[in-house]
Design a protein around this nucleic acid. Sequence first.
RNA 1: CGGGACGUGGCUCAGCCUGGUAGAGCGCUGCACUGGGGGUGCAGAGGUCGCAAGUUCAAAUCUUGUCGUCCCGACCA
Length: 574
Amino acid sequence: MRWTKTFIPTMKEVPSDAEVPSHQLMLRAGLIRQLMAGAYTFMPLGYRVIRKVSEIVRQEMDRAGAVELFMPAIQPIELFERTGRREAFGNVLFNFETRRGDRQLHFALGPTHEEVITDLISREIKTYKQLPITLYQIQTKFRNEERPRFGVLRTSEFLMKDAYSFSTSVEQLNDAYDAMYNAYCRIFERCGLEYIPVEAESGPIGGDASHEFMAPADNGEDYVVRCGACGYAANQERADTGRSQALPAAVPDADAPQKVDTPNAGSIDDVSQMLKAPANIFIKTLIYIVDEKPVAVLLRGDHEANEGKIRRALNGTDVSLADEATIERVTGAPVGFAGPVGISCDYIADHDVGAIAAAVTGANEKDVHLTGVIPGTHFELTETFDLRNAAAEDPCPRCESSLEIVHGIEIGHVFKLGTKYSQSLDASFLDSEEKKHPIIMGCYGIGVSRVVASIVETCHDDGGIIWPMSVAPYTVELIPLNVKDADVMAAAEKIYNELTAAGVDVLMDDRDQRPGFKFKDADLIGLPVRVVVGGKGLKEGNAEIKLRTDSEATKVPLESAVARVQELIEAGVQ
RNA sequence: CGGGACGUGGCUCAGCCUGGUAGAGCGCUGCACUGGGGGUGCAGAGGUCGCAAGUUCAAAUCUUGUCGUCCCGACCA
């Protein structure tokens, strides 16, 4: 391809709307343009990357035994009503009514395709002899994100590969899951993307039922907890902390807690400043409603509650923060002054609460806190739980080392669904004894457009993008330095034709621009191999070849330039 | 949905506080020079200052509303 014949609008300046590197660089390199918040056009160069990544995904899905199909993005709302997800998705589900003749129809734009594919399978699969099977598609998904952001990283319309496995047994499901898991590793590897598979929230099946694939990146929205020593990794929601229960012994002759006035200081920060006491000797008391009953959750002041862990500790199903009225009712004070001493509802405490020697807590009285509160002495403490998000330096649950926290972008997710959808949509099979069972499902997603953004997010330098060979929009950028020089152009055309004939994706920058201008653009769009043909080199019979990652170009005789480029490509692709 | 910021030519921004002729750099068009890391000169094109009301003799500038975009938070099977 010649630059002047395609459409690559690069820009020198950083658009003021773009904050994160991937967004800035994708705009600057002419990969994308914004239509509105959360919706982007993939320009020719960007779309080539989408296609390269999609092709890798296809190859690995096919290799893993999955079969491609293509389902409608537009779907009847009834399907979501049958699975209860119309409500679960809420506003995230794009849906609209429209008239067809005298009928009023209600559609949704698919945020994912469990419903559609399970409906399909329920009609077509009858017997265990047709199973197992794994189907996949690459489709645009629609989610009405409350807040689209970070360019293509979080949009309301995005390209996703979604696969669904259908099995007759948990063993079959596990095989399908493992096949997908391994395929994902190969995909991200081939895309040149660093990734961490992490344990994620487990579903109805329990155990190792879900993994997220995270690309470590400073601007990632998710937190990954991992252990450098043993390789344990989990998302922050899920991560266990390796702490054990340490119950304090009651202190026999302890002084009673001291009341201190803390006017208008309802937050840990406020009180901490007022009393000049560090947050980690506070007992944070959060009032939750668990299955309609108020429960106080006690945490160390500098820790964050984890609702999933609270739910599990209490064996509840529904957990949410209490409203102000409830808080006032159980504590007898406005929000901000709750504490375990004398509280009128049940409470549970995190492991670390028991280790505070003399704590500061709310006094359940307006504008008053207590100091010198001794856990187990001034309030009862017979058992503690893991109720909070893991933090850096927490002990690893698997080994003797400690945990670290890194930011990550979720690029893939594999999930053992079980029979949730097959039951609600009546997808079942007959076994060899003619007994009917719901099909056991798994689902497996990769955000293709998000993978592209993640690559840019992690592979760049000050000059621009650094594409891995496997996903680069073109492999070689060929730069004739002076397009008005017939000799230069002739030499460049020769290389261009030979590389193209050899099946190499070449982009020739045939614009009549100064060399510096073209070099800057070359760095920006970040093609892996750069070949320069200029007047000076030409006199010596040389072209210059440079990898995007090299700092200096190498002179190569014109006649061996093509062969050299092919060597570099072979070495780069592996 | 809560909090904050910003809307001025294609892009980056100044002007706004203190109301009175709409500006710069880059980009774009033409010509000339130049030609190895975003050139130089000359001559041009291009803006109802997001939109709407209001205050005023007069609004890019002040007021109110509204729309849009971005950031933080909440949310994200």
